[in-house]
Design a protein around this nucleic acid. Structure first.
Lengths: 243, 243
DNA sequence: GGCATTTTCGAGTCAAGCTCAATAAGGGAC
DNA sequence: GTCCCTTATTGAGCTTGACTCGAAAATGCC
């Protein structure tokens, strides 16, 4: 009885363990050598299985890579959510800064995978990281942003997709620049300033503080009219004075 | 005599014509099938030469691709400079808008090449588009931005690299998003709003109009002190009035 | 233990980048 | 025009690496 109940489980577990071994090996080889440089034979060797066995788990090298990439993006999403959850402070801009810091260092660290995600999209139209995985990742930003709007920390008329494009686009472009200056021996651009400038830009363009400027202008106007009023009173008084 | 003087020329011209034919064929094939999908045999066929001949002009497929890419980036730079030169208006933000429009449509049009530029960087560390080609391209933006600063249209304390990252990063990320929504049948994101929002962001964050806010504050302060002064004068006057 | 099904395997196939020995094409010297 | 040397061109074959497939091993079931 025990064998009947347990064996199918352990058998399934065995297959799953093997599948995980393949994925782990594949991930390592892809990271080390890139997609074209990776050899299926090496992946098989590292996973301690025959080369042909891989093909009973995955259709092709591209599909294997795809699975690795999807696993990678899912991992990123979880980590990003964890960063948000563990954030000590509650303000929108502080959290945005934490997210920016996390995203920037991740993008620099895993530039290969991120490039490959979009490179594969074109080459093999059938095999590409599903839109949903990417959308799920950027949803972390979207949620943060909407919450900021709900709490009145951000302008109500701010456009979400625009903010998202600026956020991720700028960070990824900066990451590339940092990478490029890293492998030469010129003075390195640091990550800190990139994030700081970015947050400062968000503060100046998206903060509800823009309303504050409006408020300033209102105060100016009221002051001005008060002055006019006072001036009139002064005139009245002056006329009543004996020459 | 004529043969001696002309033949070496025509001979060199012949070689150059052949090289151009290879590049043109290669470019077409790479655009149609991507790097991995491109067949050297097809490039040879289109250039009407033997497959082996390509290898007396280029070391490898990767080097051929590299040359195509460098030619591509040089072309982009020339076009971007032309867009700037032919711009009807002279204001910084109008020109920036023209550049953004050009860059966005170019990036959408040639997404393959742009991806490959950075994908090749990793895979084949020896073969990559030289930093100089890319720097030369973004120099168009840099020059425009510095000129804007010189003319006082942009804040003096604006950070050039940050503005550049925001500009190109946002546009490229937006291009990717537009692409992704294009091949599905959901409502397409248009290019116009992307550029408009971008320019609006640059206006609000980089325009020297930020000095205007400073000026407003200064006016506020001066108004306030004038009020105080007036108030004192009023008191003096009031005391001189007969009860 | 014996049969059926599933899983694993690696030698073999195929495709594509690349090499190289043979060939063709200049291009002067006489 | 012809000889000879240099240079350019060629495509048949080499090599490599993704992928296939028939056979063998493992597993499940009675």
């Amino acid at each position: 009885m025990a064998t009947k109940a347990v064996n199918p489980e352990t058998q399934r577990a065995k297959l799953e363990r093997k599948e995980r071994a393949i994925l782990e090996a594949a991930r390592g080889v892809f990271v080390e050598h890139g997609f074209d440089g990776a050899r299926m034979s090496e992946i098989a060797r590292r996973a301690s299985i025959g080369e042909g066995t891989i093909y009973s788990y995955y259709e092709s090298k591209a599909e294997l890579m795809l699975t690795v990439l999807q696993q990678f993006w899912d991992g990123l999403t979880l980590e990003a959510e964890a960063v948000m959850a563990s954030s000590q402070v509650d303000g929108f801009f502080e959290r945005l800064q934490a997210l920016a810091q996390y995203h920037l260092s991740t993008v620099i660290e895993n530039a290969d995978f991120i490039n490959l995600t979009f490179a594969l999209r074109r080459n093999n139209s059938e095999v590409s990281v599903s839109r949903d995985h990417l959308r799920h990742y950027v949803a972390v930003f979207d949620q943060l942003f909407r919450r900021g709007q709900d709490r009145g920390e951000i302008r109500q008329d701010a456009v979400l997709w625009q903010a998202r494009d600026v956020f991720y686009g700028t960070l990824e472009y900066s990451a590339r620049s940092i990478e490029m200056t890293m492998d030469s021996n010129r003075t390195e651009r640091q990550q800190g300033p990139v994030v700081d400038e970015m947050i400062s830009l968000f503060r100046s363009h998206y903060a509800a503080a823009h309303d504050a400027v409006e408020a300033d202008r209102a105060t100016l106007d009221s002051l001005s009219s008060k002055l006019d009023q006072l001036s009139e009173q002064f005139d009245v008084l002056a006329k009543r004075l004996p020459q």
